[in-house]
């Protein structure tokens, strides 16, 4: 059996009791850090947040966006698979007739309640059209009203980008 030596402190030493030397010692640490911060930026652990943002990892599930077709229209066909898959019931879609021969359906309104969303990514998994993505790399911003957190089709498309995936199935 090994024996563990435990060293106990028996109160403060004389140097510590004198107080001033210890204060000086602390000031040295502080001053050294100050000099380092002023003259050597590169080693600072603190990030200058609103100006400098940390890049989230590539697979970070951030705020949603809706992708576009080549002509800039919304890629979503309002199949409601995302709102069906959504465990938080935060996606509200109203479908309409696009009057198009090939793809008849489109979302008249598409709303996501970010306050209700749990950022699970199930909507992205469920989407058969690569129409909804969570790869904006941003998180929801604070706002002064709950209503502002219900993001609508326009906002979702503003963040959007064209998708290169083929739509309409094979052999079309």
């Amino acid at each position: 059996m090994a024996t563990i030596q435990v060293k106990r402190r028996d109160g403060l030493s004389l140097a510590e009791k004198l107080y001033i030397p210890e204060v000086m010692r602390g000031m040295v640490v502080t001053t050294r850090q100050l000099v380092k911060n002023v003259f050597g930026h590169q080693d600072i652990a603190t990030r200058q947040y609103p100006e400098v943002k940390k890049a989230y990892p590539e697979r970070f599930r951030g705020r949603h966006r809706l992708t576009w077709r080549d002509d800039g229209s919304v890629r979503c066909v309002a199949c409601m698979l995302c709102s069906t898959a959504c465990p938080a019931n935060c996606i509200h879609i109203v479908a309409g007739d696009r009057g198009d021969e090939k793809i008849e359906k489109y979302p008249v309104s598409f709303e996501i309640d970010l306050l209700v969303c749990v950022y699970c990514g199930m909507c992205v998994e469920a989407c058969p059209c690569d129409a909804i993505r969570m790869d904006t790399g941003t998180h929801p911003m604070p706002s002064f009203s709950r209503d502002k957190q219900r993001i609508r089709k326009v906002q979702l498309l503003e963040e959007g980008l064209p998708s290169t995936a083929r739509q309409g199935g094979l052999g079309t």
Partner: peptide, 8 residues
């Protein structure tokens, strides 16, 4: 020849 457009 079925379009398989089940989503819509």
């Amino acid at each position: 020849n079925h379009p398989v457009d089940c989503p819509i």
